[in-house]
Amino acid sequence: MKLLGRIVIIALAAALVIGGLVALVPSSAAAGFAAGRPERQLTLEAEQSTTDQSTNTARPEFAGRERGGDHHEGGFVHIIRNAAIMAIIIALVAFGMRRLRRRRDLVWL
């Protein structure tokens, strides 16, 4: 019962965030944007030229992005990139804090 209560609290907190998000994202603008962008094509048709996608005339701002996918949809390189970002943050924050604590510059740490 206690566990269920805790899960309900977590779900309510998540629902609060989702509610806020849905309220903040204007649905009409989202629909307009969605209508403007063509569905992402992952494979080329046999008769389709390879330059078709990189010279997208419908929405030039997306030209060349369809084939490679969006920047956040990488392959294994993305795992390495994200791990590297985390490692840099850890190095800066954790070791920086340890140094500061040793030097007693920051009493509250």
Partner: peptide
């Protein structure tokens, strides 16, 4: 299909990398 969700998904996951770090 709503591209805003896709953009937000990418943005939030990039922010997530920093926050988890």
């Amino acid at each position: 299909i709503n591209m805003t969700w896709r953009s937000l998904h990418g943005l939030a996951s990039n922010v997530g990398v920093v926050l988890i770090g």
